[in-house]
Amino acid sequence: MSKTIHLTLKIWRQNGPGDKGRFETHPAKNISTDMSFLEMLDVVNEQLTLEDKEPIAFEHDCREGICGTCGTMVNGRAHGQLKGTTLCQLHMRHFADGDTLVIEPFRARAYPVIKDLVVDRSALDRVIQAGGYISVNTGNAPEANTLPVPQDRAERAMDAAACIGCGACVASCPNASAMLFVSAKVSQLALLPHGRPEAARRALSMVRAMDACGFGNCSNHRECEKTCPKEISIVNIARLNREYFKAAFISQEN
């Protein structure tokens, strides 16, 4: 049953990339426990707007956990404390009356802050551009059933493909490493026969692109896997490593 709670928000405010930024404290009053976290922020923003203050910038779009747009740190946890959940799917019934929430943007060298809680995650697109695709022009494809894919392989590819590109793995990683994200794409395509022809090149160039973007290195802390709203497993990181070693030491690819 829904009830009403009152919260205190300590929120990072930053006018733009050049601004130093600071924490501001805002009350969030009369929050229904049926609200989603983002709806709670909406309510605070409506209030701020009417008080002639600037509302808090935060990103969101689908609000159903699939587009990967939303995401901030809540009390030190990317997407908040609930397992396998994006921020937009986190509901206020998981908080108690009187709680203080520290809300910060995802932080990494590769994620410059744009405003308040909004960061630039275009580095993730750049990594995909380096090889997160299969080179098949429109119209070139053979009949879909030409290459059978064992069901369990297809399932594992799907497990990896479920990544929504939210970048929370980077945010939660003590090293700001993007290995989980990169490995999810490399794994998906490495598991499917359609992706094998380019597997070596893909592994090498995606890792290179990832390094060039300024992400950290994987220390196998496994924070990413515990934080990931789609529960992508670090088994994929191990697979990325294998793909990389094969590519670097055995294939003829440079």
Partner: peptide, 24 residues
């Protein structure tokens, strides 16, 4: 490199259950 990958740190950074004393 890993320290440099996050130049501005978090005010609060809690573990989701991955890190251990030994990994940290």
């Amino acid at each position: 490199l890993n320290r440099r990958a996050r130049p501005v740190g978090y005010r609060m950074h809690a573990t989701a259950g991955g890190r251990t004393l030994s990994s940290r």
